[in-house]
Design a protein around this nucleic acid. Structure first.
Length: 288
DNA sequence: CAGACGTGGGT
DNA sequence: TACCCAAGTCT
């Protein structure tokens, strides 16, 4: 434990947001649902959906008992709706293989649909207090700045970065868990991507990037997501129609939300293939 | 490993 | 207005 640890932990103790999945009484399932929803999605948009989900499906078995389409519908406009599909599939696997209890080990977690390295480490850590390196975009950015002296981390996690994070992970299990959530919170609230608030950063005096004079990012161009006119936008339009419908919709209804026929057909085929939609009878479509 | 995969708020 | 970006995973 170093001054960096003490400072970050003290800052978290005083500044942590009171989020439902951080409650002392939050179930592992609540943590798991939050982690799925938070993938690439801001906290503010997750909060109401997470609350609704926990009320409707307080256990994995409750969700697994419903059709996948109900999960997709209740996902609302969170984005990346296949996360809802994967969460439903994970709930089913938990019922069938883990007696309805969210498993606690990283290996069991990462075997679940929709659970990758980050989410497995996060659930094991935040729901069960295990000691794992938790590397999300916030943690990576904080370490890039404070420890490596650069504005942004590499495009993907490499061995050196993982070892760096492992090297500063407290040995004590519960402290390691708090450390990870504290670093994430610092990245989310202070050491942000666009406009970091160095003036109110608790570790500014210990930050290598600041010490170096905030050198500008000089790595490869960071990928920017195209959106307008893409298949993804088209898929989103089609899914919105299916979500908002209370009965199967005719193909002609889908035609109204996207003019390019070739792209519209391709997008619909993709949704059917991904099991986000189904053709209940010829030319009539609905959520699965 | 690069690209696909939603959505909306902030600047 | 455009562009950036938000607790990634899968192929």
């Amino acid at each position: 434990m170093t001054e960096l640890h003490d400072t970050v932990l003290d800052w978290y103790d005083a500044n942590a947001r009171d989020l439902p999945w951080r409650s002392a009484t939050a179930s592992a399932w609540s943590v798991m649902v939050s982690e799925f929803m938070l993938q690439q999605t801001p906290v503010s948009r997750v909060l109401p959906i997470h609350e609704a989900w926990m009320e409707r499906w307080p256990t994995p078995a409750d969700l697994a008992a419903e059709p996948t389409g109900e999960a997709v519908r209740a996902w609302g406009r969170l984005g990346y709706p296949r996360r809802a599909l994967r969460l439903h599939a994970a709930a089913t696997a938990i019922v069938e293989q883990h007696d309805g209890e969210v498993p606690a080990s990283y290996d069991e977690l990462i075997a679940l649909p929709g659970v990758g390295d980050y989410t497995a480490a996060a659930i094991a850590t935040f729901a069960y207090g295990k000691r794992h390196v938790v590397l999300d975009t916030n943690v990576r950015r904080v370490f890039a700045r404070t420890l490596s002296g650069v504005e942004f981390p590499a495009q993907s996690v490499n061995k050196a970065e993982r070892e760096l994070a492992a090297g500063v992970l407290p040995l004590d299990e519960p402290t390691a868990a708090t450390w990870s959530v504290a670093v994430m919170e610092l990245g989310a609230l202070v050491c942000t991507a666009a406009n970091p608030s160095c003036t109110r950063c608790p570790v500014a005096d210990l930050c290598a990037w600041r010490a170096a004079g905030h050198p500008a990012y000089d790595g490869p161009p960071r990928k920017v997501q195209t959106w307008a006119g893409t298949d993804r936008q088209c898929r989103g339009r089609l899914m919105a129609v299916l979500r908002d419908a209370d009965a199967p919709v005719h193909r002609s209804r889908l035609d109204t939300v996207w003019s390019d026929e070739t792209q519209r057909r391709r997008a619909l085929e993709g949704l059917l293939k991904d099991n986000l939609a189904k053709e209940v009878e010829p030319d009539f479509f609905a959520l699965p």
